[in-house]
Simulated assay, not measured.
Amino acid sequence: MIAAVGLGPVSIPFGDVAQVIGHRYLPGLVEPAPAGPQAVIVLDIRLPRVLLGTAVGAGLATVGAVLQAVLRNPLADPYLIGASSGASFGAVLVIIVGITPFGLFSLPVAAFLGAMAAFALVMLLAGGRGTVAPTRLILAGVAVAAFTEAITHYLVLTSPDKDVRSAMFWTLGGLGGTQWRDIGVPIAVVVAGTLWFWAQSGRLNALVLGEEGATSLGLEVGRLRRRMIIGCAVVIGAVVAVSGGIGFVALMVPHAVRLAVGGDNRRVLPLSALTGAILLLWVDVSARVLNRPDEIPIGVITAVLGAPFFLALLRRADRKEWR
Results as ranks from 00 to 15, higher is better:
Met1Thr: 13
Met1Trp: 04
Gly6Gln: 02
Gly8Thr: 04
Ser11Asp: 04
Pro13Cys: 02
Gln19Tyr: 04
Gln19Pro: 00
Gln19Met: 14
Ile21Pro: 01
His23Pro: 03
Tyr25Arg: 00
Pro27Lys: 04
Pro27Phe: 03
Gly28Arg: 03
Pro32Asn: 07
Pro34Asn: 04
Ala35Leu: 11
Ala35Ile: 01
Ala35His: 07
Val40Ile: 13
Val42Asn: 10
Asp44Tyr: 06
Arg49Trp: 05
Val50Lys: 07
Val50His: 05
Leu52Cys: 08
Leu52Asn: 06
Thr54Ile: 14
Val70Met: 07
Leu71Phe: 12
Arg72Tyr: 01
Ala76Asp: 08
Ala76Asn: 09
Gly82Ala: 09
Gly86Ala: 11
Ser88Arg: 01
Leu93His: 03
Ile95Ser: 03
Val97Thr: 13
Phe105Gln: 15
Leu107Ala: 06
Pro108Met: 05
Ala110Leu: 03
Leu113Arg: 00
Gly114Asn: 11
Ala117Lys: 02
Ala117Ser: 15
Ala118Ile: 11
Leu121Tyr: 01
Pro134Asn: 07
Pro134Tyr: 06
Thr135Leu: 13
Leu137Asn: 02
Leu137Lys: 02
Leu137Phe: 02
Gly141Ile: 05
Gly141Met: 07
Gly141Leu: 09
Ala143Ser: 15
Ala145Ile: 00
Phe147Leu: 15
Glu149Thr: 14
Ala150Gln: 01
His153Glu: 14
Tyr154Asn: 09
Tyr154His: 12
Leu155Lys: 05
Leu155Ile: 04
Val164Met: 15
Ser166Arg: 14
Ala167Tyr: 07
Met168Gly: 00
Phe169Glu: 00
Thr171Ala: 12
Gly173Glu: 12
Asp182Cys: 05
Asp182Pro: 00
Pro186Gly: 08
Val189His: 10
Val190Phe: 07
Val191Asp: 02
Leu195Pro: 00
Trp198Asn: 08
Trp198Arg: 10
Ala199Arg: 14
Gln200Phe: 10
Gly202His: 11
Asn205Lys: 08
Asn205Val: 07
Leu219Cys: 04
Met228His: 01
Gly231Val: 06
Gly231Asn: 10
Ala233Trp: 13
Ala233Lys: 09
Ala233Val: 06
Ala233Thr: 12
Val235Asp: 06
Val239Trp: 02
Ala241Ile: 11
Gly247Met: 12
Ala250Leu: 05
Pro254Ile: 06
Ala256Ile: 04
Val257Pro: 08
Arg258Ile: 08
Ala260Ser: 15
Gly262Glu: 07
Gly263Gln: 08
Asp264Leu: 09
Leu269Ser: 11
Leu271Gly: 03
Thr275Leu: 15
Gly276Ala: 04
Val283Leu: 09
Val283Gly: 10
Arg288Asp: 08
Leu290Cys: 10
Asp294Val: 01
Ile298Thr: 14
Ile298Leu: 13
Gly299Gln: 11
Val300Gln: 08
Ala303Arg: 06
Leu305Pro: 02
Leu305Val: 05
Pro308Ala: 12
Phe310Thr: 11
Leu311Trp: 13
Ala312Cys: 13
Arg315Trp: 13
Ala317Glu: 15
Asp318Val: 10
Asp318Cys: 00
Arg319Thr: 11
Lys320Trp: 03
Arg323Gly: 15
